[in-house]
Amino acid sequence: MTALAHAAVDPGADPAAPAPRATKRSWTAYVLLLPGALWLGVFFLLPLVQLASVSLQSRYPGFPGYYYRDVNLDNYASALTDYAPHFARSFLYAGLATLLAFVVAYPLAYAMAFKAGRWRNLMMICVIAPFFTSFILRTFAWSQILADEGWVAGTLNFLHLLPGGNIINTPVAVIAGLTYNFLPFMVLPIYASLERADPRVIEAGGDLYANGFTTFRTVTLPMSMPGVLAGTLLTFIPAAGDFVNMELLGPQRGKMVGNVINDQFLAIPGGYPVAAALSFTLMAAILVMVFLYVRRFGTEELV
């Protein structure tokens, strides 16, 4: 009797038996992998190597746009000193945008996972759909919405809630733009991890802790942590490297590092070495942050 009852619960998994996901060892793997890996090698790794070598080159004095192969760390020194405020702004704005995106995205992801019912698919489409309109068009629309003549600034001014008198061309507009543009990257991973969670666990949490906020903090949030982690990275990384929001919504002075790299490469003759050094510094800084962040809130689900 007990044996049968036990058997009915245990589906008879054979844990010590070989995992049926028996992976094969064969040359086929390399054949399948090769074209894609080659592509990433030629168009991702090789360009990075080239960029690294450019970042160490020196300029010919007096010949803008010409430089020679060298091992010159001055470019990095200049990147870190002259442009330190730009880095600081990039990370500050991206960090604030990530935080705001989290605050805005979480209730939406939560509602989609637990409250939407049969509207779930429709909500999913609604989250993705705005992103079928061009990124630049939407950002430009924000510049219209936040413009001095627009209703947002008008209303706030009328209520005397806007000390500077305008939103457009301020860091606030830049952060708002960044938050908006990368929001789905926050919503979708959080939704995915909440959807996998068992709502009964949250109900049990609600049973154990009277306070709804305590339930959220001790049960719901930890369960969605892998999604939050992925979402913050997917938001922060592109936001830190972005220059379009600053260009379309931000002030004339006090740019972000993305703008500097863009200008140095495309507008300033002979800007390549410093721009390359800036790019490398940005990438290194982000990789270090990602590494520390993942180690702190660790999960293997990212890779």
Partner: peptide, 23 residues
Amino acid sequence: SNVLIFVPMATPEIVMGAALLTI
């Protein structure tokens, strides 16, 4: 291979753009 697949997603677009431009 896993790292090679993951890192491009964790690299800011501007860095990839700059690197591709130089090459």
